[in-house]
Amino acid sequence: MALTDIWFLLIAVLWTGYFVLEGFDFGVGMLLRVLGRDDTDRRVLINTIGPVWDGNEVWLLVAGGATFAAFPLWYASLFSGFYLALLVILVALILRGVAFEFRGKIDSDRWRRNWDRAIVFGSLVPALLWGVAFGNIVRGVPLDAQHHFTGTFFTLLNPYALVGGLATLSLFALHGAVFLGLKTTGDLRERAVALTKPLGGAAILFGGGFLAWTAADHGGWTWIPVLVAAAVLIAGVWYAMDGKEGLAFVCTALAIVATTVTLFYSLYPNVLPSTTDAAYSLTTTNAASTPYTLKIMTWVAVAFTPVVLAYQAWTYWVFRKRVTRESIPAAAGLPPVRR
């Protein structure tokens, strides 16, 4: 296997890790106002992801950095063609991170309510737009002979990509609800589990439709991960309703893995197909860095990846227990709102 193929595979793994881990973060954020009936409930929801959400976003940074270093032409064409969409995602992620930090700084219901809305917005928008972005990457975009994007922002809003956005939105929402069933107790847990049924129906409808559309276009072995995704998604909803949240979470995570595998398998050996002319498509060969660059990157990845994985696994182990309402301290010592 060539180094270009290895790095395509590694980038696929990085995006898979990001979607699995950040997926339930997005789901919790989207459901903040739906499941949180008072401030204590919402603090419980935020605390379920509080120790890990920023660490989960590291996967996005590494995936972007690996793409820039291993396939610079892919990175350049993506960020020029998808500039506005990626800017919106970035702003939403920044707003979400600020909201987590600022929400509890002032003792004011209005203050907290506005930051809660920012968390919902900062979770919902990336969950939707990542699906739109990857739908366009797999479908292809108009590229000229110099690999320059020749479309507009509205070129990206095609039916296939929009269904992809609804697929990731519903799948991440389900993943978050299952995660909350695993991490909370009492009425909050019961409400989260009850929500898995309608969210599971939406995920099966949109996710199944998107993956079936992808498999119909590309055929062959693509149907295998599609069928796996459908099976584990149905099993995840079943386990959640049966009170087996651990197995349900494994199933929704596997559904996200199978979905990402479907997309990258459908894409290879292209990294960004051209709808103008297939000869203008970016591939793992013509978009790659020099062999020497890829060789150095491989040694760095071999040395540091196990350390990062071990640290993140340790973090999840330390914060593995459920979060209860009783574990939330009273909001004391906060400055009152100034009128």
Rank of each mutant, 00 (worst) to 15 (best):
F304Y: 12
F319E: 05
S327P: 02
A303Q: 04
L272T: 08
T262R: 02
L334E: 02
K321M: 06
Y292Q: 15
Y311T: 10
L263H: 05
V261R: 06
G246C: 02
V323T: 07
G333L: 04
C251T: 01
A331I: 06
V261H: 04
T305H: 04
A240T: 13
V300N: 00
V318T: 14
F249Q: 13
L282H: 08
Y316G: 00
T290S: 15
T293L: 15
Y311R: 07
K295I: 10
M297L: 15
F264Y: 12
L267W: 05
S281G: 13
G333I: 03
R322N: 13
T298K: 08
A240Y: 06
D277C: 05
K295N: 09
T315R: 11
R320N: 07
G333M: 03
P329E: 00
L294A: 07
S274W: 14
R325F: 07
N270A: 08
P335N: 02
V307C: 03
A255W: 08
L282I: 08
K321A: 14
L334D: 00
Y280I: 03
S281C: 10
P336T: 01
A279W: 00
A301Q: 04
P329F: 02
L309I: 09
I256C: 01
A279D: 06
F319Y: 15
A253N: 10
N286R: 12
T290Y: 04
T259I: 11
R320K: 15
V250F: 08
A240L: 09
S274I: 14
N286K: 11
Y265P: 00
T290A: 15
F319D: 03
V318D: 09
L294V: 06
V323M: 11
T285F: 12
E245W: 07
T252G: 06
N286P: 11
A255P: 06
D277K: 04
T283G: 00
L267F: 07
A313E: 02
L247R: 13
V261A: 08
A287Y: 04
